[in-house]
């Protein structure tokens, strides 16, 4: 990639690997390849959707990217600068995270004020107590929380409200990039749309970029500019959201798309639903060659022997498959 491209990117992930050592007894450890060579880039103000079945390593991508786990391999660049142990402290102000579980992600012993105030305290983003309070109330308003509830404890709020508190906490340092790890999948369907709309509004107002993780395409399709599809620790297809919708190439993406319910009953009738057979293989014991071959309709002999890599199919559409 040319240096021009690099500067254009806000976040760039190159060949990120995260192996977890798993003890199998008798002092032996086997690496669990949760993330195995993932690369992508995100431009300022852009949303990259990341989808895949649960357990395929989406959360791990987000956490390794933010150096919450020490990556086994690969590099992360922020604004062209390599993220290291030395500069990560300063970069924490730029890159934030919203968590999947609104219950365990808020300390039950803290008030909303203190939860949102923590990043302000840590980075000393205020000079007086009054300024701190003002900032907290501003943030609460920004995410649609009632300012009167600032002194309440997190356990007194509903799931949707808790998620808003978590978003306010992430926004407190005024980041330019947020990893949203399935921020709506623990919420009621009726609230999911509200929260997703809020993410969109916030992006419009603040120009923040998202890595938006979800386990189904329906949620991601709406908010993303581009979408990456993950299967067992690898990205198998990445393309613009519309392009991926209309022209899915990887057999796995095909099946994910076919699982989305269609609003138009006539269209739904003509479409065939592709049901994947078999279970997801264990990430500790991956099949040889293409990891998807145990469930793939198009699998050939070559798929068992060689590993496909992401190849450009034009229009920024990358697919990792021999036969599609």
């Amino acid at each position: 990639m040319s240096s021009n491209d690099k500067n254009e990117c806000l976040v760039e992930v190159k060949d990120l690997k995260q192996y977890f050592p798993i003890k199998t007894g008798f002092g032996k450890t086997v690496p669990l390849k949760a993330v195995d060579g993932v690369s992508f880039s995100i431009k300022p103000g852009e949303t990259l959707g990341l989808v895949g079945e649960s357990g395929c390593g989406k959360t791990t991508v987000g956490r390794s990217l933010l150096q919450l786990y020490k990556p086994t391999g690969g590099e992360v660049y922020f604004k062209g600068e390599k993220v290291t142990d030395q500069n990560i402290k300063a970069l924490r102000k730029e890159m934030q995270m919203v968590f999947q579980d609104p219950y365990s992600s808020l300390n039950p012993r803290m008030t909303v004020e203190d939860i949102i105030g923590e990043p302000l305290d840590v980075h000393k983003l205020y000079s007086t107590k009054a300024e701190r309070r003002e900032k907290i109330l501003e943030l609460m308003e920004l995410v649609g929380l009632n300012a009167e509830h600032a002194t309440r404890y997190a356990h007194e709020f509903s799931g949707g409200q808790r998620q808003r508190i978590g978003i306010a906490r992430a926004l407190a340092v005024n980041p330019s990039f947020i990893v949203c790890d399935e921020p709506v999948s623990a919420l009621d369907v009726s609230i999911q749309a509200q929260v997703i709309n809020m993410f969109e509004d916030l992006q419009e107002k603040l120009g923040v970029a998202y890595l938006f993780i979800a386990h189904d395409l329906l949620v991601v399709r709406h908010i993303s500019d581009r979408i990456a599809v993950m299967y067992l620790g690898k990205i198998v297809e990445i393309a613009d959201a519309d392009e991926l919708n209309e022209n899915p190439m990887h057999p796995y993406t095909e099946s994910l798309l076919s699982a989305i319910p269609m609003p138009d009953p006539n269209l739904a009738k003509t479409r065939k639903r592709i049901i994947l057979e078999g279970d997801v293989p264990s990430p500790m014991n991956l099949p040889s060659g293409c990891a998807f071959r145990t469930r793939c309709r198009y699998a050939t002999e070559q798929c068992a022997k060689e590993c496909p890599s992401l190849t450009d199919r034009g229009n920024g559409h990358f697919v990792s498959c021999f036969n599609k």
Partner: peptide, 12 residues
């Protein structure tokens, strides 16, 4: 708990 991880992500 995720709130510990969240705190790490903040840089605490």
């Amino acid at each position: 708990n995720d709130y510990v991880l969240a705190s790490k992500a903040i840089g605490t």
